[in-house]
Amino acid sequence: MGSHHDTVGARTGMWLFLYTEIMLFGGLFVLYSAYYRMHAQAFISTGQELDTVLGSVNTVILLVSSFLVAAAITAVQRSQTKGAMALLTGAVLLGMVFLANKYLEWGHKFHLGIYPGSPGLEDSPPGRIVFYGLYYTITGLHALHIVMGMVLLIVCIAMIGFGRIQKERFLLLENCGLYWHLVDLIWIFIFPLFYLIL
């Protein structure tokens, strides 16, 4: 069937899928906006409890990894197979560092007794509970997407190795890259809304 060679169409399909991801997180941002309106003061004071340094580091990590993925496409287009694989491996490693940071961050919060349903959180003002509810939901869902993105990138590395992704045929890499960038994109909004809020 003819459709298999239509890369524009396949990419269109990927974008359409990304829209569903945008709307999925969008639902959470809808909630965020409403709760920000209702509990502005609590959001601001609670936001300061989050570690801005860790958040900034994670932002930089995702931006760099995004760059690496974009560069990997250029490398494939220039038939630099080894280079492309190295760039993607770098991106996956950065994804791991991101998750490690996230783990530390969540672990620290859990250690302090701040997690959904914890006694420490239950006694705080309502806005703080909601803030952490949103924080855990959004960053948790986002971390899940990071994991899925890493799996996709690893598949791409393997496919480059097998020669299934090459100069004239890199649709898979493009689509996986799009997914990875989207995850980055969502973080670009999570970062100021939770870590920088004043």
Partner: peptide, 23 residues
């Protein structure tokens, strides 16, 4: 204003990612 400024910067950043990294 701070929320607005942060959102404008985030919007610019995402536009860059979209336009160049995401082609």
């Amino acid at each position: 204003l701070s929320l607005g400024v942060a959102m404008v910067i985030a919007g610019t950043k995402s536009a860059l990612v979209l336009l160049f990294f995401m082609h």
